[in-house]
Design a binder for these strands. Structure first.
Lengths: 207, 207
DNA sequence: CGGAACGTTGACTCCTGTCAATTTGGGTGG
DNA sequence: CCACCCAAATTGACAGGAGTCAACGTTCCG
């Protein structure tokens, strides 16, 4: 862990380790600088809902609440900057542009959250997977065209908990999409979209 | 419609009318001054997901996107201030505190959205209704204790589309909660929580 | 080679959705 | 004032999609 001049610290989280725990006092604000993490909430009996995957550039821990509203677990090696809350406040005062940027980010995440609510509340398993695969195909290709083939950086269990399904349903549904010729599965962690238009149709008017 | 000095307009929407339509060019920013509206997204075949209910004080249309990401329909008579986008920008420049406030609001809404994702993705119908009723019992009583008895300002159809269920399941589940003695239903639009602790338990560790 | 975590597949169950009939309640007009 | 109407809500019967439980396959390290 490195301490910087402005009291921010740089740290890392190993795959599988949590660097934010839901319910803990929200003492800090994070900025991911490398790697990917999953954000999730748990029910008392262990059911889990992954609310998003975050990677380089993402901000975490904005909430005004005094405790974190979700947990964050590293998927691969994650590096991040950590700002104490008071330090964040002075940062925002010193750099008003940062506030603008944070507002933009939060607004975009709200839009994404609403899209995910539509998926979780109203889409079938097939539609959820179709939507998810299309989303993934665009991941990290913000400025370019979606890639026809890409790697899934998460397990079936993570996909299931993100889509509100079980791992069995995820597996079966992927198999079905494959047998129907909409996708190919070169390896467990790779997907190739063979009929993007049909998949988009299934997803319900792509986002 | 009244035009103010700073180019904002004051307007109203009658019950059932949409004052924001998903997909339309996002030309404005709204601030609700009276009434309640529902926000929702539609799938091509008409399936609907209500992403939230908003009332006095809420801000709408923040998104950076060039089209609205959701529709807004008035439940009762809604009054609102409408700012054009350029005007919003000058407003934010003139009143930096407003930006801080918007960021707070957006952060809180993100937390609520994540809670709703947990509900939609992982909770059973019973748990969804329990969570919903507890949430409603706190509505508009931000600073006070939750009310033991309250009015539902929306139809069963709205509740269903908010919770990702059908109206039949909402109806049946409410009936069951009543016969089990957790709640009473003095009239179709009123609920009394008779066993708050048990209902909270069911909801899965209240928010 | 062996074991463990992850993934796939099958058989069966059940919660919720679908379809349909009936009841309730609020508003309107005779 | 009351009968009527229509939308909303409730209730029932049935069906189906996704969950559960379990067996089997695969991959990857130790």
């Amino acid at each position: 862990m490195v301490r910087l001049a402005n009291a921010a610290t740089v740290a890392a989280a190993h795959p599988g380790s949590c660097f934010i725990e839901e319910g803990e006092p929200a003492t800090a604000f994070f900025n991911i600088t490398a790697g990917t993490a999953k954000l999730f909430k748990l029910l008392p009996d262990g059911r889990r809902q992954i609310t998003g995957f975050v990677s380089v550039g993402h901000f975490l821990g904005l909430a005004v609440s005094d405790t974190y509203a979700f947990s964050a677990e590293a998927i691969d090696e994650v590096r991040y900057c950590r700002f104490s809350r008071p330090r964040l406040r002075t940062l925002l005062d010193d750099f008003p542009l940062m506030e603008k940027r944070l507002l933009e980010v939060a607004s975009n995440e709200l839009v994404a959250a609403q899209e995910q609510m539509l998926l979780l509340g109203r889409k079938t398993a097939r539609e959820r997977l179709a939507s998810f695969l299309i989303m993934q195909s665009r991941q990290g290709a913000a400025c370019q065209a979606p890639r026809q083939r890409f790697a899934l950086r998460m397990t079936r269990s993570d996909i299931a908990d993100y889509l509100g399904l079980t791992i069995e349903t995820v597996s079966r549904t992927l198999t079905r999409l494959r047998t129907e010729g909409l996708i190919e599965i070169p390896s467990v962690a790779e997907i190739a979209i063979t009929r993007p238009a049909a998949l988009g149709q299934l997803a319900g008017g792509l986002t």
